[in-house]
Design a protein around this nucleic acid. Structure first.
Lengths: 350, 350
DNA sequence: ACGTCCAGTGGAAGCGCTCCCACAAGCCCG
DNA sequence: CGGGCTTGTGGGAGCGCTTCCACTGGACGT
């Protein structure tokens, strides 16, 4: 006695229920196995069978059931983008936005889906880890920003394929990551000003709990010391324009004679430009300004911003590539790292 | 002869392989059925069995396999957030960012995952629709922004549970959506200025292909006409600060005597404030300014911005609620709509 | 002529889970 | 004290798919 569990109406063409592989197979006059092969790349399938299956698929509007598929393949074809989000900064940051788009674009080419995981530390982090450990996704890309973020440890322990964008604070030797050389970037920006003849060079540094902030500041500092200049003019900003304005005002107050500013982000540099203009300083003649990132902002300021280019697109791309490698040859995660060199982009502000 | 397909090493405790329900069950001394019940809410399970299962789960570090589960339940417990993304505007818009966070927060409470789907019209849209039609997700939230966006039609045809944030351009009678009354908002802002005594009131409108832009503009226009004032001072911006600056400059040039500006976003209003300050106009005495949205920006401008509050958080929340209703009682999608009234928030700029 | 090989194929065994159903107790009621 | 409950339980049948394996027949080498 065959089981008939479906609603009676379903005996008909059944618009409501999605077609299954069985239906495709019988319509194409082949077995389920052959139909499956035909659909997945057509290995070891005769041309006739292939064509028949393709026709059946089209006529039925068949789409494979992803749950059934991933139950057996143990792949979900989706990867997580993990964003520790202690505040809204992440989103206002063009850096992050471009990362997101880069990752998304790259994944799309491989037909992988992006699952966005926002998680503040604390309760949400537990949820996050639980999720990551549940075979929901094939791997994770982590936008690593903040200091006390033990995600890398946990991911390494989970042995889930993952790639960090930005060096993780812990377990940097256990996971794969891409990064730029922020130290070199900070140095390059500062050296430009020194060579230009600036002698009183300030910096608007990033937050002290983010690698990008710390390293760029350090690059600024070493360069100044090497040049025998004072390195006392430091104000921290939060990578935003408003933060940059506030910092610039403070600096101007502390050192009315300053003749150069290295900002740790373009947005902060833009804020500084505005403050300098208000204060009647001419850029770059009175004060030269260098930004950081070069994504979107620098062309639009006035004057246009000389900046250190952060190859965000390539970084995102590379991160995805590292991730896919790990997913593909399942020897587990491997701690590869790729560091991109920064490059100076000269425009009008310095 | 039993099938032994696993690698030999797996006979042992098998750290590598994830534990299955079977293992939990046998460890707890119950059947798989009982274990399943215990894990899913514990209905019709004795206290002892419940406890035994919970212990086993903990000891084994068991997590249900989502693929297996959704294969039978026909639920994936994840919903898509669809963002038509013709350009980067979406991300720089605080409105969008807050929507994202609101949706995410709301979904988190129900343990649903957010799958972010960015799709430019064109090739990517095909991919998107294919994805949506494949039982990958239980439903979709669509941030509806742009005019020639036929997503609503397609979703209605797919009969996939969905909810739009912002009235869709087509099929508005077939799908559920939440929106604010942008017309009323535009009116309220303008009326405030009229009552204040402004007589030469300009507007910085949003893009002409977005509902929010059009409706707010229309609200401005009807109010001015009703008051017997001229409605010729219109400049369009792109919802950004830079756009607002440009528009304000243009307006000031066209009508040096203007005494009021209604901006379709806070960011544009902030840009206008800056231009007005540069031009030596005192806000609100010379020129009164009203913004729109009230999310983050208005408190930080100087002077602080009077604005029309857009209840973004509640909208996102409500959208998720509409979606969940449809998902829960599977009578298919229903075209409910919820319109939020805007409210005026008075600060210093008007 | 015969074995060998290999491209194609279908049968069937699961992947790990939920849930229907049958069944065993214990309970209360008349 | 037997019939009906409710409550808890396990057996087992799938969900829709991939993939192992055994098998066929024709092309090929010797």
């Amino acid at each position: 006695m065959p089981r008939v569990n479906r609603p009676p109406s379903d005996t008909s063409a059944g618009q409501g229920a999605a077609p299954t592989l069985d239906e495709v197979a019988s319509r194409a006059g082949v077995s389920r196995a052959t139909a499956s092969r035909a659909i997945n790349g057509g290995n070891r399938v005769s041309a006739t069978a292939q064509a028949a299956v393709e026709t059946a698929v089209r006529e039925l509007g068949y789409t494979p059931n992803p749950a059934a598929r991933s139950l057996v393949t143990r792949r979900t074809d989706s990867v997580a983008l993990v964003v520790p989000e202690p505040d809204e900064r992440v989103f206002s940051d063009p850096f992050f936005v471009h990362t997101l788009r880069g990752v998304n674009r790259m994944l799309a080419t491989r037909d992988l889906q992006l699952v966005l995981l926002l998680a503040r530390p604390g309760e949400e982090e537990r949820r996050l880890l639980r999720y990551l450990g549940s075979r929901h996704i094939d791997g994770a890309i982590v936008v690593s920003h903040h200091r006390n973020d033990r995600l890398a440890d946990h991911l390494a322990a989970l042995s889930l394929p993952c790639a960090f964008i930005g060096r993780p604070w812990t377990s940097a030797d256990k996971v794969a990551y891409v990064d730029t050389d922020n130290l070199a970037g900070g140095r390059a920006a500062t050296e430009l000003l020194v060579e230009r003849g600036c002698r009183r060079i300030a910096t608007i540094a990033g937050p002290g709990d983010m690698a990008a902030g710390i390293d760029r500041l350090e690059g600024w500092r070493t360069t100044l010391r090497a040049a025998g200049l004072a390195d006392d003019l430091v104000e921290h900003g939060d990578f935003t324009e408003v933060g940059g304005e506030a910092a610039a005002r403070l600096l101007l107050e502390r050192a009315p004679d300053l003749d150069g500013i290295v900002a740790a982000s373009d947005l902060m540099a833009a804020g500084a430009l505005r403050v300098l203009a208000e204060a009647g300083r001419v850029v770059p003649d009175d004060v030269a300004v260098v930004g950081y990132d070069d994504v979107g902002v620098p062309e639009r300021t006035s004057p246009t911003l000389t900046t250190v280019r952060n190859p965000i697109g390539e970084m995102a791309e590379q991160a995805v590539r590292l991730l896919l490698e790990q997913i593909d040859d399942q020897r587990g995660p491997r701690p590869i790292r790729v560091i991109f060199p920064p490059s100076l982009v000269r425009r009008d502000s310095a």
